[in-house]
Simulated assay, not measured.
Amino acid sequence: MSDVLQDLIKLLRPVFIGENRFRGETQDLGFRALFGGQVMGQSLAAALLTLPEGDWAPHSLHVYFMLAGTVGDHLEFDVDVLRTGRSFATRQVKVTQNGRAILTMICSFQHPEKGFEHQAPMPDVKGPDGIPSQLELARMFRDHFPERVRDIYTADKPIEMRVLDPVNIFAPQKKDPVKFVWMKADAPMGDDYNEHCTMLAYASDFNLVATSLHPHAVSYGQKDLQMASLDHSIWFHRPFRMDEWLLYAIDSPNAGGGRGFCRGQIFNQQGELVVSVAQEGLIRKLDLSAKK
């Protein structure tokens, strides 16, 4: 296992500090605030630690991001045990940082069972082979990044992401609000399925809200654009592995009121729909001249 992947797995495992209470650390990804996917993955991991023994697995989670978190200060996770039934268990997680609530999550878990099945078809797109990764592209444009974040953006990544027809964030052009991303962990992981789920929760926050910017020829790299995740939902449909290629098919059917709404479907290479995602994010154009 690579060092960067091992570090991320460790980061996504909050430590016990009291009954249904946990503490987690933070990581600087070069964004203006703490990456929401990190807090989401840690929150799911904290909720999993309160479940009784058995073959529980997450089937859905629903998150509200209330305040931007900061890098460098630890996080505290308080888990409320709402219900533990025979088939389903429900938990609520509140995350605080420096005494302020920054995220709340409701998540539900289920024992695996058989049932009716149908699914949407997998999009017919090129496979991951031969597509440059986002890291390779970042290194090609290394000198375009501000010096403060240059080393962070071009450092080794624990999850490899390959975008079909990627946007040039330094010179974006109008295009349909659709994006296809192949992603997988950069090294083999263990067989703990719930660890794969927390890793996917982390990764699912990448690429979503930026898709809502495509029709407007703007990108997150612009100084006059404010972006932030507002809420995020995930439904886990079928087992998967984060160390095997997954296709993240994203579209944005609506933007308005300073918000962009995005949906994601995640397929394995066998064409199975394994996860669905929905998110609304803040996409606000700033008037920088008003601050002078």
Rank of each mutant, 00 (worst) to 15 (best):
S2R: 13
K10H: 15
V15S: 11
N20H: 14
R23I: 10
T26E: 10
G37H: 09
Q38S: 12
Q38I: 13
Q38L: 13
G54D: 05
H59F: 13
H59V: 13
F65K: 09
T70R: 15
G72F: 07
G72Q: 10
F88H: 13
T90G: 15
Q119H: 01
D124K: 02
V125W: 06
D129L: 00
E136V: 06
M140L: 05
D143G: 04
E147I: 07
E147T: 03
R148P: 02
I152R: 00
A155I: 02
I159P: 02
P166K: 01
I169G: 00
F170A: 01
K175D: 07
K179Q: 12
W182M: 01
M183G: 05
M183N: 05
K184W: 04
K184D: 04
P188E: 13
D192W: 08
D192L: 13
N194D: 03
E195I: 14
M199C: 11
M199H: 08
D205C: 11
L213E: 11
P215Q: 11
P215K: 08
M227G: 06
H232P: 06
H232M: 07
I234T: 09
F236E: 09
R238H: 06
P239R: 14
D243N: 09
A249M: 11
D251I: 02
G256I: 03
G256N: 01
G260I: 01
F261V: 07
I266K: 00
V275M: 03
S276Y: 05
K285D: 08
L286M: 10
L286A: 11
L286G: 05
